[in-house]
Simulated assay, not measured.
Amino acid sequence: MRILALLIALVLSQPLAAETVRLGDRWYRIELPANPKGAPLILALHGGGGDPDQFAQASGLARVATRAGFAVVFPAGTGRRGDRLLTWNGGYCCGPSARRGVDDMGFLKQVIADAAQRFGVDGQGVYLTGMSNGAILAETFAAQNPDLVRAVAGVSGTMDTSRTRVQGRVPALIIHGTADTMVPYEGGQGDTSLTRTDFASVPSVVQAFLAPWGGVLAETRRSIDTRDDGTSITVTDYQRRGKVVLRLMTVQGGGHHWPGGRKARLTEGKTQEIDANTEILRFFAAHP
């Protein structure tokens, strides 16, 4: 009987299988924790040319997030080839979705409402993260909808700070490599960019998210360099009343990459110093 009870407890503690939900001609993938009712919700946005299944596999985010009690939604952008090679309209990037002015802001709101109604997760205040083009939209959505967002984490992508004002206080985590040739750290068009977008700089995104907090924020800096991988991490924290409201993790020598994720084609700038999933979940947990 004791063994049976242990087996039952083990089964009940396991995250639920991934499920695909269709919303008209759009869709999303959702992965739920063992107890989805009221679970905090993370929206994870794939990069340009990716898709929900690809990003879920490459990042590995859902596996660790669901075990920590989060529900994770991977929404799908739009494209010309069905459910693959998708992009987001992040304002100044990227691809057909931006050129056609696709209402991805409205779609994300629809996804949040549907996931809350269908699965019972908490849709009142969500977390957003994304890679590259997905980070651009995640940051833009958070900037324009601060009342809906608990915190945002952008990896290797910068929102259009020339036209986007952060309209409220949103805790933000930014992870970006200084050797990123697709979305350059200092801004401009990247040498290997698949678009002619003149990207905003990482410092401009930092200042945009700091602006609503006002006053003088305490700033601290530390370094992480424990692996012989040609990279190191500079962590800059901005604190208000002892709480980090913005964390910038600059990957010195880092490329266009989700740290800890799978990207076989990247030979240089693939840091082993940090794991993006760990850093993101730690930051989100600090802002319940």
Rank of each mutant, 00 (worst) to 15 (best):
P75E: 00
M159A: 06
R241E: 13
I3E: 11
W213D: 06
V206P: 02
T271D: 08
L194T: 15
R240H: 06
L6C: 15
R221E: 10
H176V: 08
G134L: 05
V111G: 01
E273C: 10
G101P: 06
G90A: 12
A218S: 14
D147R: 11
I274M: 12
E279V: 09
R241H: 14
L148A: 14
Y28F: 07
A115Q: 04
W213Q: 09
E219Y: 06
N145G: 04
H176Q: 07
R81F: 11
H176L: 10
L128E: 00
S13G: 04
Q124W: 14
G49N: 02
R80W: 10
D198R: 14
H256E: 09
D114K: 05
L6F: 15
K263L: 12
Q14R: 13
R81N: 12
G24F: 05
R81G: 04
Q239L: 15
Q207W: 13
Q189D: 11
P171Q: 08
A138H: 03
R163M: 10
S13V: 07
I224T: 12
N89V: 05
D122I: 07
L148S: 10
Q167G: 08
V11W: 13
V21Q: 01
R221A: 12
S97Q: 12
G24V: 03
L43F: 03
E186I: 04
A135E: 02
L108V: 01
A9N: 02
L248T: 06
D237P: 12
L86T: 06
S97D: 14
T278S: 13
D83H: 00
V183G: 04
G47A: 12
R22D: 08
N277Q: 07
L16S: 02
R241F: 11
M249R: 09
Q57C: 04
V170C: 09
A138Q: 05
R221I: 08
P184R: 08
V21F: 00
T164G: 09
S193L: 07
L128W: 00
H256C: 14
D225N: 14
G187R: 06
R29F: 00
Q207T: 15
I274K: 04
D160N: 14
L23G: 03
R150H: 08
Q272R: 13
S156N: 11
A142F: 07
F209M: 03
M131N: 01
S59Y: 01
T78K: 11
S97E: 12
D114I: 03
G77H: 03
A218G: 15
K270S: 08
P259W: 02
D25R: 11
T161Y: 07
G260N: 08
D51R: 12
T220E: 09
F141S: 04
A68E: 11
R265L: 12
A264N: 13
D147Y: 06
G254Q: 03
R22F: 03
L108Q: 01
G47E: 02
V73R: 01
T236G: 02
P52S: 12
R163G: 15
V216F: 12
V152H: 01
L32V: 00
A143H: 09
A208L: 09
G95V: 10
R29N: 00
V21L: 00
G255E: 13
D191Y: 13
